[in-house]
């Protein structure tokens, strides 16, 4: 799925956070979003995930403007994985990953065999099968991060938008996550702080500064600006 931002701007209480950003992510591409803290990475990701309504500009999935789409329709297209929100839930890990099936369930029925199979596949993909029955509260920060990624994968999305997913992960799991993201045929936009990971695994990089997109291109081109 192609994800496009056209002259996107978003502000908080009059303070611009994302300024006139235009970007185009081709189907199947893995794009890294770079920039210092406060540069607008998380806000841009949220605009692209339909979680914030831009002040001006347009977000398009495969050329179609998503401004008036319902949350459910957007969830059928992209999965958004934020940094751990510090939730203190008693849910089992498998149930948290199962939340990714929410867009596909009607209100009257619980999870069926297909939902459970998808959850099993997602848990296996991030290496958490052994922890499926563990309480969310008992997980480490890294395990929670992997569970959130599994929850995003369980949405069977066309596009994955991830906000610094390598935080809390040890080096082994950082590398495995990036290999997972580059190995999929889904469109991926991932905010990263680690330049070496970005250079090694991403097809292209977007560099934000004070909400402006100041560079876009291959890792070699962007990181040598």
């Amino acid at each position: 799925m192609r994800i496009t931002a056209e002259e996107l701007s978003w502000s908080v209480a009059g303070t611009p956070v994302v300024r006139d950003v235009s970007a185009d992510i081709a189907p199947g591409e893995t794009v890294g979003l770079l920039g210092p803290n406060g540069s607008g990475k998380s806000s841009l990701l949220r605009c692209l995930a339909g979680l914030r309504t831009p002040d001006t500009g347009t977000v398009r999935y495969d050329g179609e403007c998503v401004r008036d789409w319902s949350a459910r329709r957007i969830a059928h297209h992209v999965a958004f994985v934020e940094q751990d929100s510090g939730a203190d839930s008693d849910l089992r890990v498998a149930d948290v990953v199962g939340l990714g099936r929410t867009p596909f369930r009607d209100r009257w029925r619980g999870p069926d065999a297909t939902d459970r199979a998808v959850v099993a596949a997602a848990l296996e993909r991030v290496g958490l099968t052994a922890l499926a029955d563990r309480s969310w509260k008992s997980l480490s920060g890294g395990e929670r991060q992997r569970a959130h990624i599994a929850r995003g994968l369980a949405q069977q999305p066309y596009g994955l938008l991830l906000d610094e997913p390598t935080n809390h992960l040890d080096v082994k799991h950082q590398l495995e996550l990036m290999e997972l993201l580059t190995g999929t045929e889904q469109t991926v936009l991932v905010a990263l702080h680690d330049l070496s990971l970005a250079a090694r695994y991403c097809d292209r990089l977007l560099l934000l500064h004070h909400g402006h997109l100041i560079a876009s291109g291959t890792p070699a081109a962007v990181l040598t600006v």
């Binding site: 949220r46 995930a49 339909g50 979680l51 319902s70 949350a71 459910r72 329709r73 957007i74 969830a75 059928h76 992209v78 999965a79 958004f80 934020e82 929100s85 939730a87 839930s89 948290v96 939340l99 990714g100 929410t102 867009p103 959130h148 949405q155």
Partner: peptide, 10 residues
């Protein structure tokens, strides 16, 4: 899991 995660689930 917070407003944004809930909204991203549809």
């Amino acid at each position: 899991f917070g407003t944004d995660t809930a909204a991203s689930l549809g």
